[in-house]
């Protein structure tokens, strides 16, 4: 079975697409309004859930407003409108537990069926009485339920786009590995002067460039949802686009020579040089300035609660699957190039 890795690649690709699209998100809170309240008032808010089934178990619902890590008040009544809408009422105490004039409180809703869901900064409570004391703010959050079935975490703003982790990130991982293979083949060409390695290097570079462009496109679609625009001239976006220019220049360079040995040799030299500059463009420079991209400019990267074990079970196979699939594409490209070369050589000798 010398084709085992191609089968593995296809299997992992299909798995990551089916599992990555098919597995639902955990129930979460999508919106809560109004977002302003005063101390001492009876406050009723309208919470909109995503994928929640409030109407299935209306009696098991509990809700809290949480301020900081230590203080919370429980809801005094919860009315279920339909499967995704709740009316939650709170009697807000006359005083705030902290000295701030305005505090932000998170809305937490727990249900037996949906597990618990958090909506950060749901309400801003203004202290109209100017009193500071923890009275009335008892932390009664306990016995939280977990969502039982297989699901990905629900995050505000990210929502369904959290699945982009299975496609966008593996494309960039795969691109780096494929460019590395391309640079290694260029090195072997310079050592051996065997045209075979040059064809391999250019095939891998083509697939790497394709992966990079797809990575830019998937990133842009994700950015439209989370950052508000396809292209926000973020440093990470700019540097990735420039990295693609580096490799497009490689193809222009290769095509600017008539003699194939010279084109291969100079192309190989530039390919290695380009690969060395790639980490600077993608990893060093985005650290210098502010960036919206996860993992840069103080933003959390993947890890923590954004990447739970369910996601890991799709994310890591996706990296391997995309890389193997790319390598397969490159071997096909290489063989086409190799056959072309042989036909040319035969025509030359006849």
């Amino acid at each position: 079975m010398k084709h085992w890795w191609k089968i593995l690649g296809i299997f992992l690709m299909i798995y990551s697409i089916v599992a990555g699209i098919g597995i639902p998100l955990k129930p979460g809170i999508y919106d809560a309004s109004p977002s302003k309240a005063n101390t001492g008032e009876q406050f009723t808010m309208n919470a909109v859930g995503y994928l929640t089934q409030f109407d299935k178990t209306p009696d098991d619902l509990r809700a809290w407003l949480k301020v900081g890590n230590d203080f919370a008040i429980a809801a005094n009544s919860i009315g279920v409108k339909n499967e995704s809408t709740l009316n939650v009422s709170f009697q807000i105490p006359n005083n705030l537990p902290t000295k701030d004039r305005v505090v932000d409180a998170s809305l937490i809703i727990d249900s037996k069926k949906n597990g618990y869901a958090i909506f950060p900064s749901a309400v801003f409570i203004t202290n109209t009485t100017q009193q500071t004391s923890p009275e009335g703010w008892n932390n009664s959050i306990a016995d939280m339920h977990e969502f039982k079935s297989m699901a990905f975490p629900y995050r505000n703003i990210l929502q369904e786009t959290i699945r982009n982790l299975f496609y966008h990130v593996p494309l960039w991982f795969g691109m780096m590995i494929i460019f590395l293979i391309s640079a290694i083949n260029s090195g072997r060409f310079l050592m051996t002067k065997n045209q075979k390695f040059d064809h391999k290097a250019s095939a891998y570079a083509s697939v790497g460039t394709l992966f990079g462009i797809l990575g830019l496109v998937t990133g842009a679609i994700w950015a439209k949802h989370t950052w508000g625009a396809y292209w926000s001239w973020d440093i990470k976006q700019n540097m990735s686009a420039i990295a693609m220019l580096v490799y497009l220049a490689y193809f222009v360079l290769r095509n600017s020579f008539e003699e194939s040995e010279q084109s291969a040799r100079i192309g190989a030299v530039y390919n290695i040089f380009a690969f060395v500059t790639l980490p600077m463009l993608l990893f060093v420079i985005p650290r210098l300035t502010d960036s919206l991209h996860p993992g840069n400019g103080g933003n959390p990267g993947f890890g923590g609660e954004d990447l739970d074990n369910n996601m890991r079970m799709v994310f890591y196979p996706a990296i391997i699957g995309f890389t193997l699939f790319g390598a397969w594409m490159a071997t096909i490209l290489y063989r086409i190039e190799d056959v072309k070369q042989r036909i040319e050589d035969r025509a030359f000798y006849e």
Partner: peptide, 17 residues
């Protein structure tokens, strides 16, 4: 032409820093 298209993308990390 080659001088520009080959060197400008590569010089950007240095230029930005």
């Amino acid at each position: 032409t080659l001088m520009a298209i080959l060197s400008f993308p590569i010089i950007i990390p240095i230029l930005m820093t």
